[in-house]
């Protein structure tokens, strides 16, 4: 399993520029917001966490459809399905999700504080937003795995993946933004929302790979 993780991360870094494209997309999304809502720094500081979260959510959907498609096209997926008895398929999917997250989503989390500065967010808000992204974005990858597995046979399934999983990722978005806002806006609580976010990630870490494994097994 460690071998799989290493291979996937290596592929993510070496093959193409998925992570870089994702970061650029994130940057572009965050950069266009002030043009839309105006340069009012107070307003930007207020909606900052939401913008960071929505940008990261959309950016982490990029490239998700390749999660299993690349393996299907070169035959690796067949071997992973056959190896089910040795490495449970859901676990294989889980490791692939972790590797995908490491290679493609972790860079987004890393640049989030920088982009938060554009949004005039206070240091505490930056830290909270980054922390919630760190904890919450794996959940999006795990749900995304279900979508990626469902459209694995479709040549252009990328858009469909987003359509399928955006409604399901609403809870993650709600609690991610609520927690990062709670850290700065006084009456709102940080810890409850943060803990629920953590619980959501753990929940999707189970449901996502299990459903994705089921979908992959039925994809043929």
């Amino acid at each position: 399993m460690l071998a799989l993780y290493v291979r996937e991360v290596r592929l993510g870094i070496r093959a193409g520029s998925g992570a870089l494209t994702g970061v650029l997309f994130f940057l572009a999304v965050v950069a266009v917001i002030p043009f839309g809502v105006g340069p009012d720094l107070n307003l930007l500081a207020r909606i900052g966490p939401a913008i960071l979260w929505i940008g990261a959510l959309l950016a982490s959907l990029l490239g998700l459809e390749r999660l299993f498609q690349a393996d299907r096209e070169d035959g690796s997926l067949d071997l992973m399905l056959i190896a089910d008895g040795r490495h449970m398929l859901a676990l294989t999917v889980f490791v692939k999700c972790l590797a995908h997250w490491t290679a493609n989503v972790l860079p987004l989390v890393a640049v989030a504080p920088l982009l938060g500065l554009f949004m005039n967010m206070p240091p505490a808000g930056l830290a909270a937003a980054t922390l919630t992204l760190l904890v919450g974005t794996p959940a999006i990858t795990f749900i995304g795995a279900v979508g990626a597995a469902l459209v694995v046979a479709l040549p252009r399934g990328g858009l469909l993946v987003s359509v399928l999983i955006l409604p399901l990722s609403i809870p993650v978005l709600i609690f991610g933004v609520a927690a990062s806002r709670g850290a700065v806006a006084e009456p709102d609580p940080f810890l409850p929302a943060f803990l629920i976010l953590l619980a959501l990630t753990l929940f999707f870490a189970v449901i996502g790979p299990a459903a994705a494994a089921l979908a992959l097994r039925n994809a043929d």
Binding site: I170, P171, I174, I196
Partner: peptide
Amino acid sequence: IIKFSVDW
């Protein structure tokens, strides 16, 4: 979960 989070 969605219902709960939307309520929250």
